[in-house]
Design a protein around this nucleic acid. Structure first.
Lengths: 207, 207, 207, 207
DNA sequence: ACATAAGCGAGACGGTACGTCTCGTCTTCTG
DNA sequence: CAGAAGACGAGACGTACCGTCTCGCTTATGT
């Protein structure tokens, strides 16, 4: 199920998008989607994952429980959608020819997201997928996947251009940024603006 | 998954008063401790944190619920004890005077633990503590704390000795190892034996 | 159990205004009536009143829920119509001048109905109306009413003619037949052909 | 499952009576039984059968739902117990040697019960068992059985003694009383004190 | 002839209650 | 007195229907 490769334009979980199915009967009310996801996110932010109950979300959204279960069969999937809807992952991936600057930009964006309102939600969600591997693909694809591929490419290109020495450990150079930032996020360590530079100082010695 | 063995007499949570209290009446049955922790660990490994219920542990251990609650007031504390008893964290902290070697040793031990039977449990537990902050303090104290302090000390000493340049970013050098290893563990990336060296090659250029 | 046949143009509940209303727009599809009532009766026979759900009837009849609600505002009224359409209650009421024979005829017809396919349905329905008093009026009116009035008249006439003694307890004589037959039906006692005669032997001594 | 014969001293539904099972663990709290049945009966009296919900009973009794479900698996069985607890069926069965008087006494007791507070409940219950035949045995045994057997015996004895003519239709004479009284109860006809005499006047002509 | 108005299948909607499950506490009996 | 067994109040779970409400059709009728 690991559809690594050309990700097919963010298929949502219930695959309503582009379904071309006429779907007789009364159509889903899109305003309910918003209400549900907003309520879920709000409760999650206030009470944490354990504090989220479908009944609570339903009450807060002014919606019947069935309206939620019709869309998301489990609490986990509800939260996936809520997180994806709440956090903006549509970063454009930088490629200026300056590896170090590009990697710094990408780390900066990760830091911004993690420090935003969506941060704690994202962190929680990152943890949740460990036990619900079915959410893992989704998380990897939406949040991590494309960026990892892109960063790898940036470093490989730099090596080809001679900007980096041929023996560079691509794997570690690419992963070490997100690894340290997520490590800080997951362990309650402060996420400061200078982190990208401090990391890059170690792995990509300034020219 | 039942890493029964030299469970190190694991100080139970409420055994704060060490032995001064004679404790009239029938003494606790120590075999119950083992049974409870083993059952808890087994269920955790099979079903994850959410799948652990006190009732389930009691049933599996052939024990009454009260016998568990008498020892561990919450599920979180039960799990902390279970993980601590199951995984061997009683590493002696190396200090040979060779920073790089010492850090490599510590990383190697982390890798060994994460690749052992206890690995998945630890990974799950590390993830769960995000959603259950009550686990976090305990986890940090038992699993991470002492090591972090020790590693910091190693690097600081090395700087003082002149083995490392004065401007060394202690924070990052210390965290980057565990950060990358945990990152691999949490994201399903392979944890290879050469990881410590590859990391250290970047941050502590070989003398 | 699908007693399709000469459903007697069964005046639907809201057709109180007989035909004066031109009712523009598409007219009701009469085939839907049949399908709905047949489905309702079938489910009732199989699962009992509690097992009847509007959604189930709709599904079985291949009909939208609104099509049912448009005709019968409540489940009770739906079942009343279904039972009335399914069981043949259009007995002509006998009046030969021989009270005993006429009462025997009426009892015989009741026995025939209760032993027919429609029997269990009727019994169930008679029981259900106790718990759902909204069914009661309809049941009394459709199934019992006219007959009770007629039987009373027969006995009163016979007394007037001198065929029965003046002190005859009309109330009891009229009720005792249906009472005993329904009693048998409701209690699983055998309903035999000789019941009418055995009852009448007691209350209307043969001339 | 039709235990016709020497009825084993009113086994209650959950067969707690005389079970001889030591039943380790905390025993059921009898005060909960009372509270539950009283609440069920009260709601039934106020709202009717359809108005009874397990959740409502639980709330009114100040009891968790599980405490009800532990005792009665369905609403119907709860109501059975509530009815049996509420109505007093421990009539002693009269046998004075005067058939007519004895039968009149038995009918009088039935009338008293049906006119009491427990009346509507009993009537409803009598209807309920039609759909739940598994309750039928219970109802027959508790409410009807012993009395039917006894009445039969009374009439048979009277025939043997010559108090009644040899050709007397025992079946009908025995059933006709309860049949008519229940008929009145089920059909909302008035249940008057003179009913027994009026019935007996017809079937057991006064000597 | 074609607009109007209602019927129709489908199914979403806010709700209520179901019967099951687990929580953490409590109460009894046995060893 | 510890321990097993399990009852208890509480409340969330996911399901099934309720009766109402859109949808996008189809089908007579009445101008």
């Amino acid at each position: 199920m690991n559809a690594v490769g050309p990700v097919p334009a963010a298929a949502t979980i219930d695959a309503t998008v582009d379904d071309a199915r006429p779907r007789s009967g009364r159509p889903r009310d899109p305003s309910r989607d918003e209400a549900i996801l907003a309520a879920a996110l709000a409760i999650f932010a206030e009470e944490g994952y354990a504090g989220v109950s479908i009944e609570g979300v339903a009450a807060r959204a002014g919606v019947g429980k069935a309206t939620i279960y019709r869309r998301y069969p489990t609490k986990a999937q509800l939260m996936v959608e809520a997180v994806r809807a709440g956090a903006c992952f549509t970063d454009h991936l930088p490629d200026t020819g300056d590896v170090r600057a590009d990697l710094a930009t990408m780390m900066g964006k990760l830091i911004d997201v993690l420090r935003s309102d969506a941060g704690p939600v994202l962190v929680s969600f990152a943890a949740e997928r460990i036990r619900h591997r079915e959410l893992d693909d989704e998380f990897t694809r939406s949040v991590i996947g494309a960026k990892r591929v892109h960063a790898r490419q940036l470093v490989a290109d730099a090596i080809r251009r001679g900007d980096l020495p041929p023996g560079t450990d691509i794997e570690v150079v690419v992963e070490i940024g997100p690894a340290l930032i997520w490590h800080h996020a997951l362990n309650g360590l402060p996420i400061t603006d200078d982190l990208p530079d401090r990391i890059l100082d170690l792995v990509l010695p300034r020219h």
